[in-house]
Every structure is written in C-alpha cells, then in structure tokens.
Simulated scan of single mutants.
Amino acid sequence: MAPSCIFQIEDISHLREQTGAIRETVQANGFALIRGIFDRSRIRAFLPTILQYISQTEALPSSGVSAEQIRRNCLKWSIGSQSQSQSGIARLMMTIMNPTREPDVLGLRDTFTSLILVRDTLAQREQPLLDDYLPAPKFNGTRLQIYPAGGGFMTRHIDSRAIDNVRDVSAQYIQLVLLMTEKGTDYTSGGAFVEVAGEFRDSEANARSGDIVVYDANTMHGVADIDSHKPLDTSGAGARIVALATVYD
C-alpha cells in the first residue's frame, strides 16, 4: 500500500477538511485508508464478544431468508453465488446482522453510528442517513462480515445493488469497511483487494484493526481467500472480520 493512500484523521471536523483529498485518492487508486477515527485496542476488544456470539447463535442458511429476518439480529451464512443482495458474486462468509434498532448484542452501536457519520461526511451529505432519516423500507444494514480461515472469500465486483439503494436519497455512493481484525495478526494470507486498470492491489497491506477502507461507486473490489492453506474453521477464530454500514432497501 502506498503511504499516500493512508490518511491520519483526528475527528469528523478534520475528516471534512480532508474529504476532497480522500475522494481523489479513491478515484485514482481504487481505495483510501483512514486511520485514527477508531482506536485499534478498543476495536480488538470486541473480538471475544463476536466469537462468543458466533458460538452461541444458530446460523441461517444462504438462501430462503426473508427480508424481515435480515432486519433483525441474526447470524447468516453466505455460500455460493446466488445472494439475495447481489446475485452472481461468489462468496464464502458469515454475516452478523445487527441493525441499529435492534438490541445492541455486540456492544457496537456507537461504532456503527460513528461509521455512518464518517460515510455520510465523505459523501458530503447535509444530513447523515441515520435510520430516522431514511424513507421506509430503507434502513442501515449495520453488520459484521466474517471470512473464515480456510478459504473465506468474495469475488471481484462493484457494489451495484448498494449503489441503487441510495440513488433516490443521495447522489453520492461511498462504502466503508472497518477492519476489526488485521492481516499478519489474525490471518496471514488473502484479504481485501481492488482492481485498477487490470492491476490487483492489496488494500489491507500494512492496515491495522480500526482502520477504515474507503471505496466508491467505481471501485472493483473483492476478498482473496483467507488462509486457504488451513482447514475451514467456522468458529470465527483466525477469520477476517469487518464492520459495514450500508443502506439496505
């Protein structure tokens, strides 16, 4: 990762000042990395709770899950390429849905709210798109995505469905990925990448827990196989875990 892709940001006011430079970097490089909004140690302190939730919760299957179930706290598998959110993207991962109007079972409510504020600051929205300001049936799909050790992955794609979900409420699309785990500490190979002009770039090289990867509507991105040299581990141990806040319809 080029040093110019990393932005040390102190707070939302500083983020507003750097928004133009961050967005220009995303357009040129496929992504940017924001460091400083979230504390590494505090983010890593959530990991035991996440692993406990996985161990104690029955996972829903990849298909046949209703929209109402997704609006509630749940653990769901996503295996194959027939996702209800965006068909054709092959993946192997688990998702913990934790919408902001549901019980705060992971203790991440404030983290998700901050992630929404960062997202909407970068999108230069006058009003943050918190759930109370989204027209029904839209809501913020605040969630964790868990790419298990032993081959968790997602093929390259652009967020076409998520882009469509905000067209009627905002002219801008920004996607943030908050890194709960980190490459080199929790897993050794694979992780997020972007493709720019046929070149694949590792967007997590030198990244830390608490860093935010920033994409836009043109970013072709995916997740390379996580520690595929190991047996598949569905416990969440050794997984790549990220937090997202995407407007769902």
Rank of each mutant, 00 (worst) to 15 (best):
M1S: 13
G150Y: 00
A239K: 03
Y173D: 03
S87V: 03
G20R: 15
A171E: 08
A243S: 09
E182R: 07
I226S: 00
N98W: 00
P148Y: 00
T121R: 02
N98G: 05
R44H: 04
T234K: 10
L129E: 04
L47D: 00
P137I: 02
R101A: 13
H221E: 08
P103R: 09
R109Q: 11
S41T: 15
T95N: 10
A21F: 10
Y53E: 07
Y53D: 07
Q52G: 04
V169M: 11
A197Q: 11
G141E: 01
K138G: 06
G20V: 14
T100H: 04
A32T: 06
I50G: 09
V118H: 01
R156N: 12
T57H: 08
L60P: 04
D233I: 02
D164T: 06
P135L: 10
Q52H: 11
K138H: 12
F200I: 14
I54K: 04
I163P: 08
N140T: 01
Y215K: 06
L179D: 05
G107R: 08
P231F: 06
S41D: 15
Y187G: 03
T95I: 13
V242E: 10
L117K: 12
V194I: 03
D225E: 12
G236Q: 06
L117H: 08
L144W: 03
A245K: 00
L108G: 08
F31I: 01
A243K: 01
L122E: 05
T19A: 13
Q18L: 12
V247Y: 09
R40H: 10
Q69H: 07
N73Q: 10
S78A: 07
S78F: 07
G150V: 06
N206W: 07
G198R: 02
R44K: 14
A205S: 10
D11R: 05
A217R: 14
L60E: 08
T100G: 06
A149W: 07
M220N: 10
L51D: 03
V177S: 12
A243V: 06
M180L: 14
A239C: 02
C5H: 15
R35Q: 09
Y215F: 15
A2K: 15
R156C: 08
A67G: 15
S189F: 09
T181K: 03
F7W: 10
I158N: 14
N218S: 11
P3E: 15
G191E: 05
R143C: 12
L134F: 10
L117F: 02
R208I: 03
E195L: 04
G210F: 01
L33N: 11
L130G: 01
D233E: 11
A197K: 12
Q86G: 05
